[in-house]
């Protein structure tokens, strides 16, 4: 780590951000760039907005009983219905779109045609995250309190996070999120323990970062945080917490980098899913306002508070 000279920058964008970023000279800072509101309303979501993914400059968002594909400029590219309300969405490198629901995973072609459904009432009880590692598909089953590893064809292989001396993740909020650090390593949020843990795809527990803290923004407050995590292109960990809602960024070794976004969300938000694009912009769901809050690294990538409506 380079020598850290603490600086405090207060970024105020009209009516919008406001990020108090405390960071060293070597740390990336973020500011609230805009809110995407195109996802709410009659053509978008009216009740629940739960999962988000980004790939090739397209945002995939699920909730209610539909999936929306938005361009990063907020315009709607396409949408299609899902059988059950989607909890999470993930885009396979080959373009197929996986939607995690209660009791099943629906798999769609890039243009929205359903190609298959994986149903497994025991192991896909409440699917809240999906990831890909080579030929393996990793699925978070919040009700099972563990990750399930499947083959690319949907054949069950093993549980991760539960078993000998592993009693499953602590999920009071019924939400389990993870991301693939690489093809072998999984980073998984363990909110009841206030940790982010690492496992191999073979189920070996490696280590964890994170701790409980109310007064210091370096830790996680409340009964169960962080609820959602994502990975930046630089390999940093984006952790989203509730009560109060906030986004925190940690290095891959757990070193605290920055915290921001508290005022950008409805305070009642919880289980706010996050995704990061190639440029490092962080997209976080405001689950109460049914909007996507966008944070850009260092320099704003858009104008302040340019909430956009569906054209």
């Amino acid at each position: 780590m380079n020598g850290v000279r603490a600086t405090i920058a207060i970024v105020v964008v009209t009516n919008c951000v406001t990020t108090l970023v405390q960071a060293g000279d070597d740390a990336v800072t973020y500011r609230n760039v805009r809110s995407i509101t195109t996802c709410k309303g009659p053509r978008g979501f009216t009740h629940a907005m739960r999962g988000i993914a980004v790939q090739n400059d397209l945002l995939y968002v699920v909730g209610d009983q539909k999936l929306l594909v938005l361009r990063t400029n907020s315009t709607l590219a396409r949408s299609w219905p899902t059988e059950h309300p989607g909890n999470c969405v993930a885009v396979h490198p080959d373009g197929r779109v996986f939607v995690g629901e209660e009791g099943q995973i629906e798999i769609f072609s890039p243009d929205g045609k359903r190609s298959s459904v994986w149903r497994d009432a025991e192991r896909l009880d409440f699917v809240t995250a999906i990831g890909f590692a080579g030929d393996a598909v990793i699925v978070a089953d919040a009700d099972g309190r563990c990750l399930r590893r499947y083959t690319a064809d949907g054949e069950y292989v093993r549980d991760i996070g539960k078993g000998k001396r592993l009693r499953g993740f602590m999920l009071p909020n019924r939400y389990l999120d993870f991301f693939m650090e690489d093809e072998k390593i999984i980073r998984v949020a363990d909110p009841g323990r206030h940790r982010i843990s690492r496992y191999t795809i073979d189920g070996e527990r490696l280590d964890h970062v994170g701790h409980f803290a109310t007064k210091s923004e370096r830790g996680f407050p409340g009964c169960c945080n962080p609820t959602n995590i994502a990975r930046t292109p630089a390999g940093d960990i984006v952790a989203v917490q509730k009560a109060p809602p906030m986004v925190k960024v940690f290095g891959c070794d757990g070193e605290f980098r920055t915290a921001f976004g508290g005022k950008s969300f409805d305070p009642n938000c919880k289980n706010s899913d996050a995704a990061v694009d190639r440029a490092g912009n962080i997209y976080v769901i405001d689950t109460v306002r049914l909007e996507i809050v966008v944070f850009g690294p260092e320099q704003p990538h858009g104008t302040a508070n340019d909430s956009e409506q569906m054209p």
């Binding site: 602590m170 009071p172 206030h194 701790h211 409980f212 009964c223």
Partner: peptide
């Protein structure tokens, strides 16, 4: 109830953190 390790109704979460990492 979530049967949480750190329950904000049981602990005063604003109190100092002790050596066990608990309020």
């Amino acid at each position: 109830c979530g049967r949480c390790y750190i329950c904000p109704a049981y602990f005063d979460v604003n109190s100092a953190i002790n050596e066990e990492g608990l309020p």
